[in-house]
Design a protein around this nucleic acid. Structure first.
Lengths: 200, 200
DNA sequence: CACTACCCATACCGGTGGGTATACTCGTGG
DNA sequence: CCACGAGTATACCCACCGGTATGGGTAGTG
């Protein structure tokens, strides 16, 4: 394991740097934000930033990992409160809607990062793929909890696509009710082989 | 109208520049590709590039407009060959699959451009929003052709989201059969209120 | 006490990138 | 015949950016 990936708890200054960098990278873009700005905004010297994180790439990875962690925790927490398996699938889109409304309307940080750092060998792409796989796995788990569902893989793939699409439609297309539309789409997808109890 | 938006036919050198720039911007990213490289790759001087296009932003806009035009023409041509209204909606996802397979796996140029140029006042965002609106309108038209469909708007929004999601799932998530999954999702969405003739 | 971890301040370097300036060539059409 | 549009070639400017270097300060701890 490379020494860059320190698992030691972050120092106070490093926490400030990471918090500021996360906001700046997400809202203004990774390439558009220089290390000088990050340091200044965090009330810290550039040297401190490089002492703690080593490089801009490493700071970017920390930013993306942190955001992803917060997102997963948010989803897990919200979905745990929903009992009905079918409703839990649909609730995931309400969660997305909440997340989108709370954010800066800049869409998925992973998608943005992949667009900004197009080199496929950049670690960002691995992280993004992993994140998308997590989403598919999430839906696979949720779908398997439905009564008598067999083709969990295909269904999960479809739901993940709807999920992704809502994100883009909201941020790039300006579709304010993207999450609601996505929920409706998911409802239709589920109703195909797995109609809600007592539907017409 | 600003003088920058010249409608005069492009000179041969300008065409070469635009073609080369389109490939480079799409495959390596807008920010990562400098004007010097574009000029060199097109066998042209930087001065020529600036004489023809005025600025990098203008060249980027021309690139995006051209790509969008090609995409729309491709869709229109392919869909015109499909007679059945319902099948035509589904065929739009086959068209997307073909387009994705032929491309460099770098996803939607509009989404990428918005990620790379996050300033909301940048003209790219307007263009991207317009493009997404076109997609929704496309699906609205296709849906209105279905027998007895009333809620065309909501359906079109859902289909557009699926469309967008397939694009992202393919390029960022590495889901090779994203288009097929999207088609299946669209089928489910349509079957909700508009089942195919003679279904179980 | 000395050592280490953490942090501040400032200056610097090499590379790159968007954009401009100057001066010359060549073909075409009024 | 000459003016003009298109293009070549080269050099240049300036700003910014990732990253480094040096050097000093303070608090906790064995």
């Amino acid at each position: 394991m490379p020494a860059t990936a320190q698992d030691r708890p972050l120092t106070p200054a490093a926490r400030r740097v990471l918090r500021v960098a996360s906001d700046l990278f997400y809202e203004r873009g990774i390439t558009a934000v220089g290390m000088e700005l990050v340091a200044a905004e965090a009330g810290v010297t550039k040297k401190t930033v490089y002492d703690r994180f080593g490089s801009k790439d490493a700071l970017v990875m920390a930013y993306l990992r942190g955001r992803d962690e917060r997102w997963r925790a948010f989803v897990d927490e919200r979905l745990a409160a929903v009992a009905d398996p079918r409703e839990r699938v649909l609730a995931s889109f309400d969660v997305l809607g909440e997340w989108l409304a709370a954010g800066a309307g800049r869409g998925c940080s992973m998608v943005n990062a992949c667009a900004e750092l197009p080199d496929p060998s950049h670690p960002v792409h691995g992280l993004a793929a992993e994140q998308k796989a997590w989403t598919r796995e999430l839906y696979a788990r949720l779908v398997r909890a439905l009564p008598g569902e067999d083709a969990a893989g295909a269904l999960a793939g479809q739901l993940a696509i709807v999920h992704e699409g809502a994100n883009v439609a909201y941020s790039v297309g300006g579709v304010r009710d993207a999450a609601a539309l996505a929920r409706a789409a998911a409802d239709a997808i589920l109703s195909r082989r797995n109609p809600p109890t007592r539907e017409v």
